[in-house]
Design a binder for these strands. Structure first.
Lengths: 253, 253
DNA sequence: AGAATAGTGTCTATGAGACAGTATGAG
DNA sequence: CTCATACTGTCTCATAGACACTATTCT
């Protein structure tokens, strides 16, 4: 078969799916949308959609993100405003992953601060933040939830699990945990992000020493806040450093 | 636009491209094929090809690898025979990356030991191992090479650079460097893999202490070899461990 | 006062880097 | 013999983890 014989390749549909993560009420949550049509009608799924004919993959992901949440993503570089971090996650192309046609989905990972309202374009009942534990619970539904969310449609549970694992490992050796925080945040708030994403408790004193001692990780803004109660805490912005060396260590077990 | 309106999505061609890396003569090398047709006729490119209509992405990558090199890949799990490590790398979908049509390429990374002959299916002049430094050299060709290899066709320089960076970082925290070694190897041979991939010199004594002291990384086979000269060295196989904790530290600078 | 959170200091165990010194082969 | 490589041991410094202690607010 000569390469690029224009009649010799099978046609594919290409979509982007989004794993949008945030930390709400001390829990790692993902954005889920309810499917209005078959297949998997009524089930929860990851947001996503078709890549347009002249659109880059990353642009398609940013467009879908804006349509679903109103969030503006900055694929690389530091957060200028209240933007979200966006990166490509992986591509899923099992021939049977969609029962109707051959669809290859390029999944993207988005890390966003909590504050933005969950939606901007759709209707309120069809999009929500759900704890990833509930979305990934075994199909018997062991997790008590006001509304059953698992199992996700298609192979989206696998995609979500891959995205969560990527986020868990990336905050070890990068400063990406700050993408879950508002523009100004305290050391304690950053620690609660780590605790929620990793699902562990960290020693506040050692954590404080570690993050404030890593050059370029945090930049003090001069302000303080008491929004967490207790003694006023310094406010910080994310510094220019993107990689942490040495990394944050995720406690074993 | 209703989702999955079968007439509402633009058609894409989906390909797999392969970044096949090995260590030869103390240098990190990648597999390159010479293009026989336009565009970029006569230029070097990464091996790859179309994904078939009912073929998984990983299966397509393994098939292309076997067609180009005769290597058999085992996507996950330990090397049973002289297989190569294969994993998905990233997906490239710039609308203009191929001048003729919309092509989305799912790049895969392959790490292989040196021994296998460079090719099995094509003709000898159209496929070769080339040092990644030469393939990624600036277009002015600062690297002296018997035959100019850079710049690669399409966006393959970017793909190769991403694959090399992935390999460089993965051998820090995983036992994947053993994928570059034959089934049985010495500590010194493993060290030369690290030195070639990272492009640095490592202290042989500290390296020996580190790798032999990490549980599950190396399993002694009982044999010895003098193929490197000097005092006979113990032979090892790769152990069951896949992640290294604590990781190998890549020297700075 | 008591509770809650922020922040500092101190000790210890672990591991990386530097490097002395010994072991065992090939020529 | 020399040379090359393999391997062991020892010292020092950096840092993670454990945890005592102080600081500053709110109720």
């Amino acid at each position: 078969m000569p390469p690029y014989d224009l009649s010799a390749f099978p046609p594919f549909a290409v979509t982007v799916d989004l794993v949008v993560l945030t930390v709400r009420r001390h829990a790692l949550c993902a954005l889920a949308v309810r499917r209005g049509e078959p297949p998997y009608q009524g089930r929860w799924a990851l947001p996503g959609g078709f890549v347009r004919a002249d659109e880059d993959l990353e642009a398609a992901a940013a467009r879908e993100l804006a349509e679903e949440t109103g969030l503006h993503a900055h694929p690389t570089g530091p957060p200028p405003a209240n933007g979200a971090h966006l990166e490509q996650l992986a591509t899923y192309g099992d021939p049977k992953r969609d029962p109707r046609m051959r669809v290859v989905s390029v999944a993207h990972l988005v890390l966003a601060p909590d504050l933005p309202a969950p939606r901007a374009g759709g209707d309120a009942r069809s999009v929500r933040w759900a704890p990833v534990d509930a979305l990934l619970a075994p199909e018997t539904g062991l997790v008590r939830d006001e509304e059953q969310t698992a199992p996700l449609a298609f192979d989206h549970a696998r995609i979500l699990a891959d995205g969560v694992e990527r986020a868990r490992s990336k905050i070890e050796y990068s400063s990406l945990a700050t993408a879950f925080c508002p523009q100004e945040f305290t050391v304690g708030e950053l620690r609660r992000v780590y605790e929620a994403v990793w699902g562990v408790a960290l020693d506040p004193r050692n954590f404080h020493r570690k993050v404030t001692g890593t050059p370029g990780f945090l930049v003090p803004t001069g302000g303080t806040t008491t929004r967490q109660g207790g003694r006023p805490a310094q406010l910080f912005r994310a510094g220019g450093a993107t990689v942490l060396n040495p990394p944050m260590l995720r406690p074993e077990i």
